[in-house]
Structures are given as structure tokens and as C-alpha cells.
């Protein structure tokens, strides 16, 4: 094989790679990265048993049932979570049940964080290796899932919850859930 031909074949790889990449990017265009994969919507939480951070007992999906609740996925390495946390504390104080999932985080850092901001969470799971986050299809932190009383995922929000998001995206859905005949 002549050196020129060999080089052409070698250079073919980046060319092919580039067009594959283009295809992917084009396919990604119409998507909203904050949408929940339909596979999980209106399905119960995947089975899990995670170490708890507030209690010695591990947390299972059964601990997240009983009333309409939020499951907040967050981390101390996540800057927007800092912004969100005071509002979550306020929500918890007003009677909203919030469960937490510390995502790929360090238990010590989480405890220090809670000492500072206060703890809005009824239960808090430690997903140090991100495996539950993977099962939930977590894209980044923070994300919040709305669970009904049976622990079925009804809605998912990507990004922080602020008063506007709460009023417009969460409250109407929670009211609808509470009116639903069980």
C-alpha cells in the first residue's frame, strides 16, 4: 500500500467521526434536555435500598410513600443547589414533604451543608456512586421529581425550584393530585 493511500485511510476516520457527530447533534436539536424520559413518567420509582444520611436505617421506596412529596436530587458540588436550598427549607417549613437524594456527594460535606442551611428533608439518601441517579435518569443537579402518595413519578423538573417554578409548575399539579380519587 502506498503511503499516500495509507494516510487517506487514516484520515477517513476523523471524517466519518465528524459526520456521525453531526448526525447526533442534529438529532439532539429538537430535544428539550429538561424533559423526563417517558419510560419513567407515571411509573413507580425503581426499586432501591440506599444508605440514609439522617437515620441509620437504609431508605427504600416504601419510605417515600404515604403522601404527595418531592424528591430533590442535589449535591454540595452543585452551585445552583446553593441557590435553591433556602427555598426548599421554606417549603418544608410550610408543610411540603421533601425527600432528598445526595448525588455523587461526600457525607461529611452534606452534613456540614445541612448544619448551615437547615434540613428541609424528611429522608435523605446517600447516592455516593450515582447508581440511583442513573436509574432515575438524572441529568444533572438539581432535579426534582413529584411523587404521588403511592410513590409514582408524576412530574420532573430540571433546574432549581424558585417561587415562580413552584407556583406555575408544581402547585397546579399537586392540587390536581390531591383532588384525584384514590
Amino acid at each position: 500500500m502506498s503511503p499516500g493511500l495509507k494516510l487517506s485511510l487514516l484520515l477517513g476516520a476523523p471524517v466519518v467521526g465528524f459526520f456521525v457527530l453531526l448526525g447526533f447533534l442534529a438529532a439532539g436539536l429538537g430535544r428539550d434536555p429538561s424533559l423526563l424520559p417517558s419510560a419513567l413518567l407515571d411509573r413507580p420509582l425503581p426499586g432501591f435500598q440506599e444508605p440514609g444520611l439522617l437515620d441509620i436505617d437504609p431508605v427504600t421506596p416504601a419510605d417515600l410513600t404515604g403522601q404527595v412529596s418531592l424528591l430533590n436530587v442535589w449535591a454540595t458540588w452543585c452551585p445552583p443547589c446553593r441557590e435553591e436550598m433556602p427555598y426548599l427549607v421554606a417549603l418544608a417549613e410550610s408543610g411540603v414533604t421533601i425527600h432528598g437524594l445526595a448525588y455523587k456527594d461526600d457525607a461529611g460535606a452534606v452534613r456540614q451543608w445541612l448544619d448551615h442551611y437547615g434540613n428541609p428533608f424528611r429522608t435523605l439518601m446517600n447516592d455516593a456512586d450515582g447508581s440511583l441517579g442513573l436509574d432515575l435518569g438524572v441529568y444533572g443537579a438539581p432535579e426534582t421529581f413529584l411523587l404521588d402518595a403511592e410513590g409514582v413519578i408524576r412530574y420532573r423538573h430540571v433546574g432549581i425550584i424558585d417561587p415562580r417554578v413552584w407556583e406555575e409548575d408544581f402547585l397546579p399539579r399537586i392540587r390536581a393530585l390531591e383532588e384525584e380519587p384514590s
Binding site: F24, A27, G28, P33, P37, A39, K104, L134, Y139, A141
Partner: peptide, 11 residues
């Protein structure tokens, strides 16, 4: 996500 394996984050 596009390949349909769900969504994940590296971080």
C-alpha cells in the same frame, strides 16, 4: 439520551 439509554450526568 439520543441512543435511548436514558439520561445521565458525569459531573
Amino acid at each position: 439520551d439520543i441512543l435511548g439509554f436514558g439520561k445521565l450526568s458525569v459531573g
